[in-house]
Design a protein around this nucleic acid. Sequence first.
DNA 1: ATATTTTGTTAGATCATCCTAACATTATAG
DNA 2: CTATAATGTTAGGATGATCTAACAAAATAT
Lengths: 218, 218
Amino acid sequence: MISLAEENYLKALFNLAGQRGEVNVTELSKQLGIKMPTVTSMMKKLAEKKLVYYESYKPLRLTEKGKKEAALVIRKHRLTEMFLVEKMGLGWEDVHEIAEEVEHIRSTAFFDKMDELLGFPRIDPHGSSIPDKNGKFASIPYDKLCDCRVGETVKLSAVIHSSSEFLKFLTNRAIRLGIRMKIRSVEPFDGSMVIGYDNRQETLSRTVCERLLVEKGK
Amino acid sequence: MISLAEENYLKALFNLAGQRGEVNVTELSKQLGIKMPTVTSMMKKLAEKKLVYYESYKPLRLTEKGKKEAALVIRKHRLTEMFLVEKMGLGWEDVHEIAEEVEHIRSTAFFDKMDELLGFPRIDPHGSSIPDKNGKFASIPYDKLCDCRVGETVKLSAVIHSSSEFLKFLTNRAIRLGIRMKIRSVEPFDGSMVIGYDNRQETLSRTVCERLLVEKGK
DNA sequence: ATATTTTGTTAGATCATCCTAACATTATAG
DNA sequence: CTATAATGTTAGGATGATCTAACAAAATAT
C-alpha cells in the first residue's frame, strides 16, 4: 500500500525527472517543501518498496513500478482537473489545489467514471497527456512553439507546467488550447516571438514559447 | 485546524448521539474500529480544542462548535454521495465508501459547487437532511414508521443509517423514497408491521420500521 | 452488599512523517 | 590542487495517531 505522502514523492519525482529521468535530493526537497533529511529517509523507504533506485550521493531514479504508480496518481490528478473544469464549471485557477487532494482517493471506480463521462480524453485542460488505467501515457508528438520557424501556422495543443500565474497570463491574452497561431517574427537576441492569432498580435517571450506545445501543419 | 482523524471522531460522535446527545467511549470505539484508550486520548485533545465536553467516566457530548464541525463534514459526505449518484451515475452501494474519503477535502468551493449543481437539496439520496454551509440542518418533521398507527397512510421520506444491506433489502421490496404506505396491522408481540403500497403488501420487522422516516397525512 | 462484569483510564510502546544540528561527500573556484 | 561551497547523510528528537497491558471506576447480579 502506498501512503498519501509516498504518492506525493512519486508524483514529484516523476514531474521533475526530465529526459534523463534523474532527480536531485535538493530539487525534490524544494519541490515538495520538505527538508532534505526527510527526503533521504523517504527515498530509502521507497527503495525498499522497489519504487525508486537509491544509492547514497547518486541522483534519484524511479523504477518502472515507481513510474507506473506515479502515472496513476497523475492520471487521477488530471482527470480530476478536467472533470472539475468541464463538468462542474470550476475555474482553471481553482482546480489544481482541489485536484491535489482528490488525486489521493483510493476508489478507481470514481476516476474511471470521470474518465468515461469525459469521453476518455488523452489530453487534459492544461494540454497534458492523461495516462490510462495502466499508467501508460499516449505519446503525442508535440513541438515547442520556440522550435518553430517564422511563417509557420500551428495549432496550440498543450501547455507545459502551468502555474496559475501562467494560466492567467494566457487567459489575459485570449491564448487558449486549439487556437491557430502564425509566427510572424522571431527576435534573434532573446528568442521572443511575434505571433498572430484571432485577428490579434502578441509578442511572447522565449520563456513563454518554451511552454507552449503546438502541432505543425494543422 | 481539524485533522482527518479528528473529523472522523466528530462525525461518529454526531451520528451516535441520539436525542440526549450523549455517547459512550465503548460505542464510539466500536463505531470507529479504534481501541478505547486511543478514543480516550483523542477525546482529551478534542476537549482542549473545545469540540467536545469531556469528563472522566462521564458520557461524551459535542460542544456547539463540535456539532457545527461535525455537521460540515456530514454536509460534505452527503453532498458527495448525492452528486456521485445523481450526476455521475454511480450506484448507491458504491458511493458511501468514496464519500468517506471525499468528505475530508478542504475546498469548500468544491462542495458548494456540488450543492449548486444539485439544486441546493436539503435531503440526500438516502433521505437524510443535508446541513447548509453554516452547519445548520433544515428541520424536517419526520416520524418513524414504527410510531404510526394502524390505518394511517404516510409518505416515505427518509431512511436512517442506511447500510448497503439495508438499501438492498428495500430495493428488493420496491420500497423507495416518495411512496405512500398504508399501515394495515401491527403485531404487538414484536412490533412488526404489515404495510400496503403499490398494490403489494409486506411485513416489516420493528428494526426496519424504526429506520423508515415518514410524513403523515401526505 | 459484596463479587463480578463492564466500562473507562493510565502508562508505555510503535510507526509514519516531519524537523534541526552536526557531519560527510562531491563539486567548484581560485 | 587545495579551500570553499553545495549537496547529501546520520543522529536524535517531536508530533499525531495508533496499539497492548495493567489498573480503576461504575454498573450489575447474586
